[in-house]
Design a protein around this nucleic acid. Structure first.
Lengths: 225, 225
DNA sequence: ACCAAGCGGAGGACCTGTCTCCACTCTGAT
DNA sequence: ATCAGAGTGGAGACAGGTCCTCCGCTTGGT
């Protein structure tokens, strides 16, 4: 039963030292470049990592495999935030809702490509689906508690959360370069529209300057299609 | 001074009947296909129009030229809506704001590609810039009147309008197939967050069903990048 | 009946991204 | 110190997409 070097019987094979070093370089480079420029090509990741394309493709069969590897942690952080908020919502339902959305959007603010990985099933190879599927029930519980406590208008629906996330993340992606904190202003506005009877929150930051508007529009809609 | 057939001296040349017919077919096809699928290639426009690619390229030097031609009217409609709202805002400032945003977004709802043409300068050949430049002052006047009348919170900024447009148009583009009227719900929520002290409006339609959420997410973020 | 204006659409030029291949280099066990 | 074989790099094959040209054939208008 004893193996030559490793304990577990089905250990695939230890990577050679230089190979392991390159693997790390690739993962770090990918994390960095995906976070700031989106899901670029593996050729670009290779260049950023300072290795050849061949090296990247030998280590990761496809970009999707690399994505699964990279985003496991982010998905975990999101699920933790949601779980914590769901628990808090038993006693402090409004504060839990605010905290959840704030945490959730802060995580997205750190990584430009997170929205396409986490909010759709178009990328990755299924390794993240389990984590993602936990979100809906947690969201329902947070909304349910808030409504039961009377801090949300009656016609509020749990799906208003994802719809609002779409709007805020779209805005966030459009204003990343120009004012990376701007989404907080519109989150505060959204939240204040959800209270029954209306309940104006204080806005956490200033609006955009006039000269920044074209750049936001360009980032939001230049893609065409 | 007399010309053979036409009055104006610098008339370039009358188009042959079949050529004129094809020109119309191209324009109509482009309007239709741009409205429902975005700014697709001229090859696709040609196929949709039932003419050869060569015919399209002989008539329009580039896609941008075609765009200028097509969207002159839409820009005109937007400017009219804004002008009318700015005038109405002298006497009915809140209603004017609501009407302006509703009209503006309804025009966008009819045409998927309008946002990339009208809200950026990335498409077209400059023929629409004059119209677009009229928008900012009209918006400022509408906001100014609303604030003077006390129907907008004090910290509301004129640039909150374009930021909100980015959010609502992004949502609209993501929910076109699934629920083309959904944006009205979130416009109502946005508007009610703008009133001083809070003022909950009635929501004009239901939220999305749970099963429609993934499709919205996919449409919003599948692009990657 | 004639012929220039107009037509279609195959295909060339170019771009971007994915992935393979193989001559060479380097690691690490002996 | 040696050397088997794991690991490397990057040119380039391939796929898919857009733009645009070219030229033999068709058609409208006089």
């Amino acid at each position: 039963m004893g193996a030559t070097t490793d304990s577990s019987a089905n250990a695939p094979r230890p990577l050679r030292a230089d190979a392991e070093r390159n693997r790390r370089k690739i993962l770090d480079a990918a994390r960095e470049v995906f976070a700031e420029r989106g899901l670029v090509s593996l050729d670009e990741v290779a260049e950023h990592a300072g290795v050849g394309v061949g090296t990247v493709y030998r280590r990761f069969a496809s970009r999707d495999e690399l994505i699964d590897e990279l985003y496991r942690e982010s998905v975990g952080r999101i699920v933790s935030a949601a779980t914590a908020a769901a628990e808090l919502s038993e006693t402090e339902p409004w504060q839990a809702l605010v905290a959840f959305l704030t945490d959730y959007l802060e995580i997205h603010a750190e990584d430009r490509s997170l929205s396409s990985v986490v909010l759709t099933d178009a990328h990755g190879r299924g390794g993240l689906e389990m984590g993602k599927s936990q979100m809906a029930p947690l969201g329902q519980r947070i909304v349910g508690n808030a409504k039961a406590a009377g801090v949300l208008r009656d016609d509020f629906s749990p799906t208003d959360i994802p719809a609002t996330v779409v709007m805020l993340v779209s805005l966030m992606n459009a204003t990343r370069e120009v004012d990376p904190e701007l989404w907080r202003r519109y989150l505060a506005l959204a939240l204040s529209s959800w209270r029954p009877g209306g309940h104006a929150l204080e806005l956490p930051g200033p609006a955009l300057g006039f000269e920044q508007v074209p750049s936001m529009m360009r980032a939001a809609f230049s893609g065409g299609r």
